[in-house]
């Protein structure tokens, strides 16, 4: 827990520095017509760095060393949701929303949920079809498409 606190504070501090540096180059003064574009981000960055340093010190000084950030079992559970999700988004990027969703839904429900194939297929194929009907046909809102959809003529 403490390590996680320290890392987060360090990252926040880094963001603070980045903000400060980037707005410095924009002009962070108080111009003739009030603050310039970089004024607020600059002080924001300074304040964020200071806050993060405080949090860093707080975390370093704290005596709570007991609990780890995540138990092994929790980590497995979180990873089981997080990894497929990232994979799904990556897949959408490559092959488009509809087929990727179908794969993701079926895969997830079958291997993690261990539901029966009939249910898995019904939901896994039904959802993309329904979304397709809703967005592409009814609302005319185009979603991310890949080579398969284009080949099919959409």
């Amino acid at each position: 827990m403490r390590v996680a606190e320290i890392i987060t504070a360090a990252v926040l501090c880094a963001i603070g520095f980045a903000l400060t540096a980037e707005s410095w180059s924009l002009g962070s003064g108080w111009g003739k017509a009030g603050p310039e574009a970089g004024f607020f981000p600059f002080w924001l960055g300074v304040l964020l760095s200071l806050t993060a340093i405080t949090l860093f010190v707080q975390a370093t000084l704290s005596r709570d060393r007991g609990k780890p950030f995540l138990e092994r079992e929790q980590l497995v559970r979180v990873a089981k949701v997080a990894i497929p999700t990232v994979a799904a988004v990556a897949l959408i990027q490559v092959i488009g929303l509809y087929f990727a969703t179908a794969l993701y839904l079926t895969g997830y429900m079958r291997w993690i949920g261990r539901h029966s194939w009939s249910l898995v297929l019904a939901v896994g194929l039904g959802t993309p079809l329904l979304t397709f009907a809703l967005f592409e046909i009814w609302f005319l809102t185009p979603m991310r498409k890949g080579p398969i959809e284009i080949w099919l003529g959409f």
Partner: peptide, 8 residues
């Protein structure tokens, strides 16, 4: 069920 709702 959770394993269906989550991916949805």
């Amino acid at each position: 069920p959770f394993a269906i709702l989550t991916p949805l």
